[in-house]
């Protein structure tokens, strides 16, 4: 009996030692969008700090949300969009940030800070921003296009590619009626239903991951796509033109945040601060031409990058953009609405 106890305590002691010696090896588990944080940025961070970074990817905010809500995974850093931050803050899922460790937050343009979804950036910092607008293949579409109404007209039937995203499509219809993008009420949905009924049969392709494919290979000649996609198209060929819809648009802000359950908060904050460095942020922009909220990084970018209308809308345009609020349980209704109309 005694020996047994001895063995047991020795084992425990060793286990404890093992644990203690394992603790200083620094880890960071990132749960982020696939293809959004370049690998060489992560490698640079590891090299500089000695932190071992593991990366797990998701393809939509909701995949991340369902996994987080089910209690899966030990994540130290997540990358939600603005409306998800709002929901996560409301449900107390996030760890408050220590701004003393985020000295580089000063590089971010004020227009992206202190947003309604996270006042004073208590829980999140902006990573990349962007908008949704219209891309026109001017070789194939000769009419002037200025608005959603110009896109969704019978002449364009079978030529249109849009994001495969019910919330987006509903947003465009709300904008076309002069309604606020967050007023997803039953009354407003009823009001936009006839609009959508006209629009949806005109659409040829729904694609959220790579709407540029249909435009590049000629199967679509006009599209409503992410700014980053638009930027790639503009860089690729002069025949593509970017149009900010006259009815308005929305601004999305993909952010970084730390879940409450995180075990390596310090490393997560160090990574955030690293990302906020101008020269690092600039490298991200080179790979992913979204709207970079980092002013200091923009100073390091080429004029060509900054002139890309899809990446960088004017400040006036940005001011007019609205930001998504979390619509909670309404998401299911708009999915049903769009599905119903598609199936007709």
């Amino acid at each position: 009996m005694k020996t047994k106890k001895l063995v047991l305590s020795t084992v425990t002691a060793f286990a404890f030692l093992g644990f203690a010696s394992a603790a200083p090896t620094k880890n960071l588990n990132i749960y982020c969008w696939s293809e959004y944080i370049p690998q060489n940025i992560i490698d640079q961070f590891s090299k500089e700090t000695g932190v071992k970074v593991s990366v797990e990817n998701y393809a939509s905010n909701e995949e991340m949300l369902s996994k987080l809500a089910a209690g899966g995974g030990d994540y130290d850093l997540i990358q939600p969009s603005e409306y998800v931050i709002e929901a996560l803050v409301k449900d107390k899922f996030l760890h408050p940030l220590d701004h003393a460790k985020l000295s580089n937050l000063k590089n971010i343009a004020p227009q992206f800070l202190n947003m309604p979804f996270d006042p004073d950036n208590k829980f999140s910092i902006p990573y990349m921003a962007g908008t949704v607008g219209i891309v026109v293949n001017t070789d194939l579409v000769k009419d002037e296009v200025r608005s959603f109404a110009d896109v969704f007209k019978p002449e364009n039937k079978g030529k249109i590619v849009v994001l495969d995203d019910a919330r987006e499509i509903v947003t465009w219809a709300l904008l076309s009626q002069g309604l606020g993008i967050n007023q997803v009420t039953d009354k407003n949905l009823k009001q936009i239903k006839p609009i959508l009924q006209q629009w949806i049969p005109l659409i040829k392709v729904y694609d959220s991951d790579s709407p540029k494919t249909a435009l590049l290979n000629g199967d679509a000649s006009i599209g409503v796509v992410w700014g980053g996609e638009g930027a790639i198209l503009l860089n690729k060929n002069k025949k593509f033109r970017w149009v900010m819809p006259s009815e308005g648009a929305h601004l999305f802000i993909d952010s970084l945040a730390i879940p409450k359950t995180a075990k390596n908060v310090d490393n997560a904050e160090a990574f955030m601060n690293f990302i906020l460095r101008p020269e690092i942020s600039k490298q991200i922009s080179e790979e992913f031409p979204y709207l970079n909220p980092n002013l200091a990084a923009r100073k390091l970018m080429t004029q060509k990058q900054l002139d890309n209308a899809a990446s960088f809308p004017s400040d006036d345009e940005i001011k007019k953009m609205q930001i998504f609020k979390d619509i909670g349980t309404k998401g299911s209704d708009i999915e049903e609405l769009i599905t119903t109309l598609k199936a007709q």
Partner: peptide, 10 residues
């Protein structure tokens, strides 16, 4: 799939 994910209606 969409009801489970973007619909958040499991």
């Amino acid at each position: 799939f969409k009801q489970f994910t973007s619909g958040r209606n499991q």
